[in-house]
Amino acid sequence: MTNTTQTTAQTADHAPEHPARMNIAEHVPDVYKAMVRLDAAAHEGLDPVLVELVKIRASQLNHCAFCLDMHTKDALAAGETVERIVQLSAWRESRHFYTEKEAAALELAEAITVLTDGFVPDEVYERAAKHFEEAELARLISAVIVINAWNRFAVTCRSVPGHYTPGQYKGLK
């Protein structure tokens, strides 16, 4: 996480890359490995593209550049389109890009992520419950909670975006 090489997007015209504050995996490897295992367990059996969409949307809401970089790249590698990723921050206005199931998952992800707006509304939960079996819904809720935790690690530690390669952290369980 402390890599200081320039990204392909950086040139003399761009701001310098900020250094990471801390590499959390280095200092608390047991916590990091537990988070990796929790992440894998949370979305086991869910559609990988749906999981990436939810992770991207939560990361947008949490302003987590590191996770946006990672999950956008992972979504593209999983077959997601650039168009749907670009539209994700305005998915309600571009709802026709997403299935009803995806829209319900995105709405639930937003409600779980932005708790300052109040509790997760019953109607949001019920819409998601119409599209997901109970066990699948429990996995989705877990996946949203886990990405929110990852966002908080990355934002707090100032993890540097731009260096992630799709699948880079697979197999760290």
Score class of each variant (00 low, 15 high):
Val146Met: 05
Asp117Ile: 00
Glu52Asp: 15
Leu46Val: 04
Glu110Asn: 12
Ala77Asp: 11
Thr116Asn: 11
Leu53Thr: 13
Tyr125Leu: 15
Cys64His: 02
Thr113His: 01
Glu126Val: 00
Leu88Ala: 06
Thr2Trp: 07
Val155Ile: 10
Pro19Glu: 07
Arg139Gln: 15
Tyr98Thr: 14
Ala25Gly: 03
Arg92Val: 09
Phe97Met: 08
Gln168His: 07
Ser94Cys: 14
Leu137Trp: 11
Leu108Val: 13
Tyr98Leu: 10
Gln87Thr: 12
Thr2Cys: 05
Cys157Asp: 04
Lys101Met: 06
Asp30Val: 09
Ile56Cys: 12
Ala149Leu: 15
Gln6Phe: 08
Asp47Glu: 10
Glu126Pro: 00
Val146Asp: 04
Ala9Asn: 06
Leu46His: 12
Glu44Arg: 15
Leu108Lys: 03
Leu140Ala: 01
Arg92Cys: 03
Ala12Gly: 06
Ser59Glu: 02
Arg95Leu: 08
Glu107Leu: 13
Ala129His: 06
Glu93Phe: 07
Ile56Thr: 09
Gly45Ser: 13
Phe66Met: 00
Ala58Tyr: 00
Arg158Gly: 04
Thr5Phe: 10
Thr81Arg: 11
Ala105Val: 06
Gly171Pro: 09
Val86Leu: 02
Phe153Val: 09
Tyr32Val: 00
Val120Gln: 10
Val49Phe: 07
Glu44Cys: 00
Gln10Gly: 06
Met35Ile: 02
Arg84Ala: 06
Gly171Ser: 09
Thr4His: 11
Arg127Ile: 02
Asn3Lys: 11
Ala154Ile: 01
Asp13Glu: 08
Asp69Trp: 08
Glu107Gly: 09
Ala77Asn: 11
Pro161Ala: 12
Pro166His: 04
Phe153Pro: 04
Ile85Asp: 03
His27Leu: 15
Tyr98Glu: 08
Ala103Lys: 00
Glu107Cys: 12
Ser159Trp: 04
Glu136Ser: 10
Arg21Asp: 00
Gly118Arg: 09
Val36Ala: 06
His27Met: 11
Ala34Leu: 08
Gly162Thr: 13
Ala105Ile: 13
Ile56Val: 15
Lys173Tyr: 04
His63Gln: 07
Ile56Met: 06
Thr5Asn: 14
Thr99Phe: 12
Ala25Ser: 06
Glu80Ala: 15
Asn23Ile: 10
Ile85Gly: 13
Val124Trp: 07
Ala25His: 10
Ala105Asn: 07
Thr11Asn: 15
Val86Asn: 08
Val36Cys: 07
Gly45Gln: 14
Ala42Thr: 15
Arg21Ala: 03
Asp13Val: 05
Ser89Gly: 08
Ala90Met: 05
His71Leu: 03
Ala75Glu: 02
Leu137Val: 01
Ser94Asn: 14
Ala111Gln: 07
Pro16Thr: 00
Thr7His: 00
Thr156Val: 04
Val114Lys: 09
Glu93Thr: 01
Ala138Arg: 06
